[in-house]
Amino acid sequence: MRLFWVGFFIFWPAVAVIACYIAPGMNWWFPGEAGSPIGRQIDDLFYMILWIVTAVFIAVQAVMGYVLWRASATDNKRAFFSHGNHHLEVIWTIVPAGILLFIALYQMDVWAHYRIQSQYPTEAAKAPIAEVTARQFEWRIRYPQPDTKLEIKPQKHDLYAVNELFVPAGRPVMIYLRTEDVQHSFFIPRLRIKQDAVPGQVIPVWFEATKPGEYELLCAELCGWGHYKMKARVIALPEEEYYAMIEKLEQAQSFDGVPAEADDSNADE
């Protein structure tokens, strides 16, 4: 019995160490590898906290195992009773407080970069690429006409799309997020971006997709019975392809139903 309980308390820290060690490689904790620099920073913060917690957990388990081993060694020795020990109380208050303070200070940069508007990447903040309007149960997207700036108020030549957001890859981009009805949440798991859309507000959100590809966009706020189907895709494209795609969108949007060959007279416009 003695061996069992000591082994029991030693076994779990061992599992924890192994799990922590192989977790990043196995992609256990995250929905895929972070697709953006800020996403990697956020992951790093997570891992840092994970390591701190693991270290504390192992330490506590080790002490437990030791105490069990020692206390059960001699049957008739009375245990030391430490309840109300002032020094111990001070130690285990100050140490966690210090750790928390460290975490709070350490993550401030990332947080500011991620959420504080004055810290947004200037290029992205200057030229928001689209307005994303959440609606039960879809994402409606409005791009500015190529070579114009996105205005909060819809403009005549804006381009419209639904459930498919094109972004240029490899640089930060900013969107305006709003909602037409209830509260939704703009969540691109791979890019580690999650921002609530609040009725009546236009919220600037920036993110970056390092590599071209397709990213899932979900609603992360229970918004009604159709919440589960409120899915869209974000498609990151190399810069030129992105502009070509917007051009294509513009052409599709101004389609007048006349087959191309018959439309030559107007094609120059």
Binding site: R135, Q136, F137, R140, V162, K229, M230, K231, A232, R233
Partner: peptide
């Protein structure tokens, strides 16, 4: 695929 804006018909683009 596109839904009907102005109604509850959402887009099923995916």
């Amino acid at each position: 695929l596109n839904g009907i804006p102005g109604t509850y018909m959402p887009s099923f683009l995916l």
